[in-house]
Every structure is written in C-alpha cells, then in structure tokens.
Design a protein around this nucleic acid. Sequence first.
RNA 1: CGGGGUGUAGCGUAGCCCGGUUAUCGCGCCACGUUUGGGACGUGGAGGCCGCAGGUUCGAAUCCUGCCACCCCGACCA
Length: 497
Amino acid sequence: MCQTKAMAKNLTTRGEDYSKWYNELVIQADLAENSGVRGCMVIKPYGYAIWEKMQAELDRMFKETGHQNAYFPIFIPKSYFSKEASHVDGFAKECAVVTHYRLKNAEDGSGIIVDPEAKLEEELIVRPTSETIIWDTYRKWIQSYRDLPLLINQWANVVRWEMRTRLFLRTAEFLWQEGHTAHATEAEAIVEAEQMMHVYADFVENYMAVPVIKGTKTESERFAGALETYCIEALMQDGKALQAGTSHFLGQNFAKAFDVKFAAKDGKQDYVWATSWGVSTRLMGALVMTHSDDNGLVLPPKLAPDQVVIVPIYRSDEQFDAVSEAAKEIQKELRAKGLRVKFDNRDTQKPGWKFNQYELQGVPVRIAIGPKDLENGTFEVARRDTLEKEVMAKNEVVDKVVALMDEIQENLYSRAVNHRTEHTTEVSNYDEFKDVLESKGGFISAHWDGTSETEEQIKNETKATIRCIPFGVDKEEGSCMVTGKPSARRVLFAKAY
RNA sequence: CGGGGUGUAGCGUAGCCCGGUUAUCGCGCCACGUUUGGGACGUGGAGGCCGCAGGUUCGAAUCCUGCCACCCCGACCA
C-alpha cells in the first residue's frame, strides 16, 4: 500500500479554523447551501441522499420496535400552546406565528401586501415540536387501556426561530422525526424512553460510526415539559460535544394539560403516561464533524450514497471502450454483492479532477482502471479513510472491496472512539477542570454537587455545561469540584454545539 | 436580539477613504486544437441593474439613509 499525496484542496484546514473548515466543507461537498430565507438551508441532492439513508435505517428501527408513522399539521393553534406551562416557557421565544391568511395588491401600486382584513381569529404557531397538537389529538384516540400503548412517529419539518444558525447544526427550519407515545403505566413509559435512547445510540454508533455516551440530562438541560431527558452525546474533532439525540419521559404532564384519560382494567380513570423522542438533520453535522479531514468529507460505507466509484483512465476511444467494459463488469459483480457502485464515465472531466471530487465528497472506495490495468489484469483501489492505494489482482478485487466496506466502517468508528478516549479527562478540582477545558477540551468527568446553582456558575465561568449524567458508570463518592459538597457520582462536562 | 464585519460575473477578488473614459484579476463557463495513471495547456469568446430601495450630485460601485442576506463574538437553543 502506498499513501496518496495530500492534495491541496481549496479548503481551510481543521487546524487553521475548524468552524470555517466545516462551513466550507458542507458547501464544497455539495451537501447543502444557504437559501434566500434567513436561517433556512437548501439541502442539496448529495446531502439529501445521505439523510435519506439515515431516515431509512431509523424508520426500519422504529417499526421493528412497534411504532407506526403518521402525520400531524404544521400549524398549531396558539391556545394549545399555553396549556402546558413549562413547554410554553421553553419554546415561546423562538416561534414563528401565522397571523393572516391573504395577500392583496397595495392600493398605491407598490406591490403585494398582507391584507389587513384577513387577520386570523386565532393565530397559528408554526410547530417547533408537536406535543401539543398531538396530545390534543390523542385525547380522542384514547379511552381504554386497550388503546394503549399508542406508539406513533412522524417525519416532519419544524421551525425554531434561531438567531444564530449554521448549516445542519442549527437552522431555523430543520427536518426530523418525532416519536410520541402514550402508556398505561409510568414504568412502561420510562422503559419506552430508555429504549429509544438505545435505538438512537445503536443507529449513531453502528451506521454513522459515531460513538456516543448515553445518559440523562440535568434538570436545567431537560426538555421543556419533561420529567426526565435521556440523551446521547458525541464528541467532535475540535473537542466540543454535540447532542445527537434525545428521548423524554414526559410523565403525565401533557395528559393532564390535554385531559387524556383512559379506563384501566379495574374501571378507574387515570391519565396516560407519555414519551417523546427525536433526532434531526443535525446528525448530518455530527457525521461531517466526526470523520472528515482536510481533504474533505469522509463517509461511513453504511450511509454513503455511493460506496464505490469507478474512474476510467484512457486516451483513445478504443481504450475507453476496453476500460469501460472492464469497469461495467466489476460494477456488476460488486452490485451483485449488494454494493452501491457508480461508474463515472463522463468524458467531460479528467481523472485527476474526479479523484479530487470524490475525495471531497467522501466516497469510501475508489477504483481506477486504465490501460496498464487491462494489460496486467489489475485494478487500483484507493480507500478514503486512510488515503491508501493498492493495486489488486482482478480476481481478488470483488472480495477485497466487499471486505473493505466493513473495514472502513470499523476503522472510522475505532478512530472516533480513540479520539474520544484521548479527549476524556477525569479531574479532581476546579483549577484542573479549567486547565483541561482550556488546553485540550473534550469531555471532562468531574464531581458536582447536584445543584442548578453550581451548574450555572460553572457555565458562566467556563462556558462548559453538563452534557449528561452518564449511564453505566460506577457510583463514586466524592466532593463537588466547586463547592466541596458531597457528590455521589461523576458527571460529564464539555463545551457544546 | 446586542456588538463587530462583509456583500462587485457561477465562485474568489481589486477598485471605495479621496465620486469622473469601456469596472480589475484569477478560477469556472462556451468554441476549436493538443491532452487524459492526482484538480492539463494554448488560442479565441461569452458573461455585471457593483445585495436591494431611496437620497445627495452635472455625474455614484465609491458619499448619506433605510432594508435584506451572510460571517465572527455574546445571550438562547436539537
């Protein structure tokens, strides 16, 4: 194997400016671009193809765990919103509101204006999330324990009027799925919320090759209206954390607000127990920021729209025909193994240009075929994750490339795990905490006294927040690094996206 | 939403302070030819309401006002 030269792309490097690198990469890899509408992005075909892959796997996982898809309106009457107090508090500041339903020509001929005559009796909120409209609907669907559990998911767009936006990471409108379930018992709802956190972790680790920490949120980081928020947290290459998915145990808050009761077996009426859970196009940002390098995007084979690209090299038409024949043959054989294989036979771009383009777009494996290969019975196979090239004998290419898919998928995951391990630090006092935060960032495991006040103080002084109270770690008696008060366990801090 | 910055051809830019011929350069685009194993080269060509709307002026990319979008820093957030 030999290493390919690091090609100079018109891309800012991660070392120079991580955030600039991200912005440029998303655009140059043709994933998305800004639109004429403030804070709203256009997801381009290549980016959308990756999102569709994510959707397909998640949708399958949701259905395997008994959920069904449905669709609820994008508009929510304002009165619904005010029914659950903490929910309003959480979202009120970032809601788009529809106030009118008609336009007309201005009388002075200056153009189209909103018709002041056409004011809505009740204003409509463009959904920032759908709990209220869904629970208003569930009231009609649920009468008996026989109607439970109700396990519904919807794929939708939502709008949160964000002041500062970044492609995929935070946009005013974004795509997501939101699951909303209703259960007869508290225990069952908690099991559901935990289950969905595990489903998310499974997807993110095994398909996106992004390792995550599972845990719960502190009270101040909890979803507006939830009793408990379960989350998965990932660490990006710049040492900042990114919340990749959340699952909420909502208790009976929404059932009470929307009067959703059911008759139990003993005939008594009780409020149902709720969960909601979601992941969004933000996952695209996590995918980019976890694996990609200074040469461009790096995609895990399981989510890459094209897993293999074949680039022909030729001078004459005769050579092109001969090379094409070999290319189509190998494409057919790889497709028979279930791989997504593109043969780029465009004559309008040169091989070197194509190499760079597919590197920028993160295609996991590239196969080049030229006259020399036809002569020698070989192919040149290059992998994107390590940038290694290897000349392979024709008869071993298919098996090797098929094996490469798993190898690359695993390599990306273990690379990310290593990075996270190296950037997870246990500290014993506040000075050390600030030191580590400043010098290398990443997750910092520390003792905390469990109060919102201390959490707030740390946030104000260092910009780090408690990402989660992690699951599956042994309890360890200690004292809070700030106040010295007793602490039963360590929690994970980080600066976050 | 507060502070700072930017907006000139598809992209990146010069010109702007100090107003005055036909708005600069590179990449990309089109045609033709030579090329094709890591973003080829030559020759010729097309492409601009200088972000938008007002204003000042004999004259505005340039000065003034308002608006819109984007970027960076804060507060907020999936």
